[in-house]
């Protein structure tokens, strides 16, 4: 039964990676750049939600919405100020800029909110009244459900995370497959000049992509901090790197690839922690990545780069 427990926590962690990886993969697919500041947008989202709920006592759902709105705006602003002026610059310059934005966000967070860890509130629990042996009735929080007579415990965070990830994937697939803007995004990711000739405003499309990715980052930040409740200015950087790895693993530029890569990375990480070694888990994760890339350089679901004839 413990295997099933590990598998479920792996899928849950992987779902968070997948949501973050979507941001990397969509931006890469369309702007052909690696937005290394994406992980730090997650951190900003988590902080915004934290303050909205703890300091301004807003309900959690409103807190998440506020975080999404602010992160969406932040994504658009970062793109406008930092990346858009470099649209014609070599990709290395854009990459360095992205790393710069990442450090800027971390340091700004440290300045604004200090580096003291914040304990993220528990959102996903319910109050249950319990009768104690001495007869008094107590109200205690319950944060999960027990299955198989207590052998398998699934927390609400886990359930919510997996469901949210599924909903986001389905919504994005429907968006890119059926809507005009979604199809324009796919057209831009294939051939920007041809897309321009169709009358598509490529700049707007790139902004929309950043907006969607950053909005999703806010959701990922809240889910991440609900599962691992310590919030510091560097909270986003390691999950960001892992999610980037997940995106490459699944095939960067591919939306189903982000899901597959994220889930696999999460499961491998938890399994390695459980059965091999906690210290070596990251080494194992990256070793698997290297092997996959050696066998399939475009990632699991990546498309080979077409040679222009």
């Amino acid at each position: 039964m413990s295997f099933l427990n590990f598998l479920i926590s792996g899928i849950s962690l992987g779902s968070i990676y997948a949501i973050i990886a979507l941001g990397y993969t969509m931006v890469y697919g369309i702007a052909k750049m690696l937005n290394f500041a994406h992980g730090d947008v997650i951190m900003v989202g988590a902080y915004i939600c934290f303050f909205a709920v703890s300091r301004y006592s807003l309900p959690p759902l409103v807190g998440i919405l506020v975080a999404m709105v602010i992160c969406t705006l932040l994504g658009i602003i970062i793109e406008k100020l930092a990346y858009k002026p470099l649209r014609a610059a070599p990709s290395l310059a854009v990459l360095i800029t992205a790393i710069g934005v990442s450090y800027f966000l971390q340091n700004a967070a440290q300045l604004l909110w200090s580096s003291n860890p914040k304990v993220f509130p528990m959102f996903f629990q319910r109050m249950v009244s319990k009768t104690t042996p001495d007869g008094t009735v107590q109200i205690v929080p319950v944060n999960g459900i027990d299955l198989f007579g207590g052998e398998l415990r699934v927390s609400y965070v886990t359930i919510v995370t997996i469901l949210v990830c599924l909903i986001i994937m389905l919504a994005l697939t429907a968006f890119t497959g059926n809507t005009k803007m979604g199809k324009a995004m796919r057209a831009c990711s294939e051939d920007k000049d041809a897309a321009r000739l169709m009358g598509i405003n490529v700049n707007t499309t790139i902004s929309v992509t950043f907006a969607i990715g950053s909005g999703l980052a806010a959701i990922a930040g809240v889910l991440l901090c609900s599962a691992y409740p310590t919030l510091v200015p560097t909270t986003g950087s390691m999950p960001g790197i892992k999610a980037f790895t997940a995106a490459v693993f699944g095939g960067i530029g591919s939306i189903p690839g982000a899901l597959l890569g994220g889930l696999m990375l999460g499961v491998i990480e938890i399994m390695a922690k459980a059965y091999v070694s906690t210290q070596l888990s990251d080494a194992i994760v990256f070793a698997v990545l290297i092997i996959v890339l050696l066998v399939k350089p475009t990632g699991l679901l990546g498309r080979p780069v077409r040679e222009k004839v």
């Binding site: 199809k183 324009a184 796919r186 294939e190 041809a194 897309a195 169709m198 009358g199 498309r303």
Partner: peptide
């Protein structure tokens, strides 16, 4: 310069984008 990963129908839809 057709959109190679999109269907014929979707390519034509893109033509009517404006």
């Amino acid at each position: 310069r057709v959109f190679a990963h999109m269907t014929v129908q979707e390519n034509l839809d893109m033509g009517a984008y404006s």
